[in-house]
Each structure stands twice: as C-alpha cells, then as structure tokens.
Computed example of a mutant assay.
Amino acid sequence: MKRLILMRHAKSDWSAGAGSDHDRPLNARGVAAAQALGDWLRAQDLLPDQVLSSSSKRTGQTFIGLGLADDTPTTFTRDLYLATHNDLLAALRQATGNVVLMLGHNPGISITAAQLVSTPPDHPKFNQYPTGATLVADFEIDHWRDADWGNAVARHFVVPRDL
C-alpha cells in the first residue's frame, strides 16, 4: 500500500507586495493553519517519509509550519509550481516513499484530488479545495509508477477551518 497526503498551500498574503506570484508569502492565518495541519497530521499518525513540493515561497512556508521531521527527504521544485493534474501525477509516479506529502497549488491540486479518488470524501469543501485543504488517500499498489486516476481510496479530508 502507498499513501498520499495531497495538500494545497495555506492562505497566502496578497497584500505582501511580493515581486512575483512565486514569491508571495503566507499571511498570519496561513501560518496558523499550517501549524494546525501539522498538529493534525501528528495526531492522526500521518507522517510522510517523502515530501514533494512546489518551490514557491508559500508552499515552503506551509511545509515549515507543519513542523515535520527535519530528516524527511524533501524536494522543492519549480516543476510543481502551478503544475497541472497530469504534471502532479507524473511527479507522484516518480516518488520513492511509502507515505508521500505533495504540496502544491490550485487548480492542479484540486483536479488531482478529484481524479485520483474512486469516491470523493463526504465533505462540503472537497470540490472547492480551499487553501490548506488536505486529502489523505491510499493506493493498493506496490510502486508509485502504478498510481492512476480513480484508483485511490479517500481516508481523510480536512480543511484548516475544521481544526
């Protein structure tokens, strides 16, 4: 079995005056949400052994806010910045961990979540996939290369307002 934790970055600060969208940071609510999501992951014993993340400032800050183990293999790549659902699946198929946290952006993250699960979770915010939204999905596969659309089972879905 393989497990994916698919997370949209926490709330960003549109008023920060960042030079580019890629450099936009989290706002105070986003920082608090990232910490709450990290606490939730630990409470559920959902700790990744690999992290694949967009290289944007807000995904990096979300990751830091989660407070995960410093020795977790982590890749920050521009390839996941505003990546499409097909790009995200391609990156996931290259993963090596058993529990992979993937941090990214909408609309790619929400489309990926909707297409990966065989049945969507019963949550009113799933289709909107707001900032900080997190899906935990299990795949009955031995290798990530076998991950495909519709072959994951949703185990958890949470948004920061739930916490």
Rank of each mutant, 00 (worst) to 15 (best):
G30D: 03
G30N: 06
G30W: 01
V31K: 15
V31S: 15
A32G: 09
A33E: 13
A34Y: 04
A34H: 08
A34Q: 07
Q35A: 15
Q35I: 10
Q35W: 10
L37D: 14
G38R: 03
G38N: 05
G38E: 06
D39K: 12
W40K: 12
W40L: 07
W40E: 11
W40R: 10
W40I: 06
L41T: 09
L41M: 08
L41R: 04
L41Y: 06
A43P: 03
A43H: 08
Q44V: 08
D45V: 09
D45N: 13
D45H: 13
L46M: 11
L46I: 12
L47G: 11
L47A: 11
L47P: 13
L47H: 12
P48Y: 00
P48I: 01
P48K: 04
P48D: 06
D49P: 02
D49N: 02
D49Y: 00
V51W: 02
V51H: 02
L52E: 04
L52S: 06
S53K: 07
S53H: 07
S54A: 02
S56E: 05
S56W: 02
S56L: 03
K57R: 15
R58Y: 01
R58H: 02
R58T: 03
T59L: 01
T59V: 02
T59W: 01
G60K: 14
Q61I: 04
T62G: 05
T62Q: 07
T62A: 02
I64F: 13
I64K: 14
I64W: 13
I64A: 15
G65F: 03
G65W: 03
L66A: 09
L66G: 10
L66I: 05
G67L: 03
L68M: 06
A69Y: 05
D70R: 04
D70N: 10
D71G: 10
D71N: 13
P73L: 02
T74P: 04
T75H: 13
T75P: 12
F76D: 07
T77K: 10
T77W: 02
R78P: 12
R78V: 14
R78M: 13
L80S: 03
Y81V: 05
L82A: 12
L82S: 12
L82K: 15
L82T: 12
A83P: 00
A83G: 06
T84P: 07
T84V: 07
T84M: 04
T84F: 03
T84K: 08
H85Y: 11
N86S: 13
N86A: 13
N86K: 12
N86E: 14
L88M: 09
L88C: 09
L89Y: 00
A90I: 00
A91W: 01
L92M: 03
L92D: 14
R93I: 00
Q94Y: 05
Q94F: 02
A95E: 00
A95N: 00
A95L: 00
T96Q: 14
G97Q: 02
G97F: 00
N98E: 04
V99R: 08
V99N: 06
V100Y: 00
L101V: 06
L103E: 01
G104T: 06
G104H: 03
G108K: 05
I109G: 05
I109C: 04
I109K: 08
S110W: 06
S110H: 10
T112S: 10
A113F: 01
A114H: 12
A114S: 14
Q115L: 14
L116R: 05
